[in-house]
């Protein structure tokens, strides 16, 4: 099956709360318990205050499209049949901070994408966690109804 050939995350245990959250349909990122700075991707120390103390806070799983690319050619195993496909950065507000997360952009023709479009996270359980892709809010709602 094509999907099993795709690259999978390997560092589930490095950032267990993120993967557990994603598998449960929740989007969680690190926040420094000392100064409150939010950070993504996860790191050992807070770059603002150097504290190693961290908590994982839940973000509303919506965001806006910051930028994207449409991949027409790839050498990645498992994706050879997919082009063209859109991958983009989604800006998510969480606990007073802002992070940008990368994921697949779905539910829209690539030619219709625009910076600032509203997106909702779509969780796809794999292995020990879940991938987080993004769908246009309108399309997502249409799918649900």
């Amino acid at each position: 099956m094509t999907t099993t050939e795709r690259p999978r995350p390997a560092g589930y245990d490095d950032h267990r709360p993120f993967w557990d959250g994603a598998a449960a349909g929740r989007l969680v990122v690190q926040r420094c318990t000392q100064c409150g700075a939010v950070r993504w991707p996860p790191r050992i120390l807070c770059g603002a205050c150097l504290s190693p103390e961290v908590e994982w806070v839940e973000a509303t799983p919506t965001g806006s499209l910051f930028t994207w690319t449409v991949i027409h050619h790839t050498t990645l195993a498992g994706f050879k049949d997919d082009p063209p496909y859109a991958v983009g950065l989604v800006e998510v507000t969480v606990a007073g901070g802002l992070v940008r997360m990368l994921g697949g952009i779905r539910g829209c023709a690539p030619s219709e994408l625009q910076v600032g479009m509203a997106l909702r996270a779509q969780f796809e359980v794999v292995d020990d966690g879940a991938l987080v892709n993004w769908v246009l809010v309108g399309d997502d709602e249409r799918q649900e109804t």
Partner: peptide, 25 residues
């Protein structure tokens, strides 16, 4: 690690796939 865990599973991670997003922005 970021590329392995958070880019490649979405079918991206090679330099042009990253930089193209900066160009788009």
């Amino acid at each position: 690690k970021v590329v392995r865990d958070y880019y490649l599973p979405y079918g991206t991670g090679a330099p042009p796939q990253v930089y193209a997003q900066m160009a788009r922005r």
